[in-house]
Nucleic acid binder design. Structure first.
Lengths: 202, 202
DNA sequence: GCGGAACGGAACGAAGTATTCCGCTCCGAT
DNA sequence: ATCGGAGCGGAATACTTCGTTCCGTTCCGC
């Protein structure tokens, strides 16, 4: 079912804009919309035809990331070995770079109802994986700690995306090994509200 | 040796501006200069009397961070136990939040010759501490890896500075434990040029 | 050929912000 | 008392930077 000419271009643009937006906004969350259009090799008009405004584009991007997170969690949950499931989950999420989106774009748009629901689902799935892995984890690790660790991995960032992935995997390995040791951790674990501050209005 | 009146205020402002600038620019590297003045309870004029332009302020701030880094390294090096020296160094640097400055402000100004020299000294001091700790570290850790781990800790950030410090310590503990385990790490370690890309001109 | 869907990108207007400028205040010396 | 000027505050200036709109053009499908 091949779409010829203009129609074909339109379909390609749909994709190209999202890919470009991801690259641009991951590199700089405050980048101008025009930069996305340029990267996508598309006129600004073509972009605004699809998204009523910048905020909608950001929202879509972030929601996509959330869906990826959920998909990774569901995928990893299929793994029978508890620790492997947990590690696979973390590696998948880190490689997908989901948290860069979340961390950088949080607060730049108001989430939809659907996004909130998905976020809750995502949290539940993650909690399940962590619970399964708990026997292998140091005693005082909580789910909220994992969020923090994921954000830490997202902080590893180079101009070269592929290399960034390699280095993140390297860092994540150190973290994972650190999660299995026995000693106590200092201070109380993060509370949910402490992790969600980016979303608080204003 | 008390300085009365205007002179007293001037001295206080010197400090107030730097403290305010640190807080403001750590929270948002692109914050307007006016925000610093407001936070410091100082007129913009008072600020521009001291720094010819925004870039000079940022440079000063970053250079101060570099000096802090050096001081922490020298301080930690006094510790006789190799591992304790290493851990003390990392905890000190993380608590001082040096890397937030580096990571966020890199590229917003051109470094002075003195800064480059200090940066080299800092690298040497850090390398010395890492070398001392090497017997306790997993085999394939390199100095450049430590830079990355410090940047990761800097990514932990909350509105409340004190709480941020607590959580960073928590995360750093996981990392430190991960650094002592035995397994191999995936991928090649970061190269120096990969870590310095933020400084490359435009 | 025609109509309209889709495009590209110039132009517009609202913000935001680095820096300048100037009138005012207060200290210290004469 | 008075005066000079160091230091201050913050309004005004002069741009720059975007988000968004608009319109002429292109290209299919009929």
């Amino acid at each position: 079912m091949r779409r010829p000419g203009r129609g074909e271009q339109a379909v390609r643009n749909n994709e190209a804009i999202l890919v470009a937006a991801r690259e641009i906004f991951l590199a700089d969350p405050r980048a101008p919309v025009a930069a996305v259009a340029e990267r996508a090799k598309v006129g600004i008009g073509a972009l605004y035809r699809r998204y009523p405004g910048k905020e909608d584009l950001l929202r879509t991007l972030c929601h996509d990331g959330l869906k990826t997170f959920i998909a990774e969690a569901e995928q990893a949950a299929l793994e029978p070995d508890d620790w492997t499931a947990f590690a696979t989950f973390l590696r998948g999420v880190v490689q997908a770079d989901v948290h860069s989106l979340t961390v950088h774009l949080a607060g730049t748009f108001t989430p939809t109802e659907q996004m909130n629901a998905d976020a809750e689902l995502a949290a539940d799935l993650a909690a399940g994986l962590i619970e399964r892995a708990r026997p292998h984890l140091r005693a005082d690790i909580e789910a909220a700690d994992i969020t923090l660790l994921l954000e830490m991995c997202a902080a590893v960032r180079l101009p070269d995306a592929a290399r960034t992935g390699e280095l993140r995997d390297r860092c994540l390995t150190v973290l994972l090994d650190g999660l299995r040791t026995a000693g106590p951790l200092p201070g109380p674990p993060p509370r949910v509200l402490e992790l969600n501050w980016r979303w608080l209005s204003t």
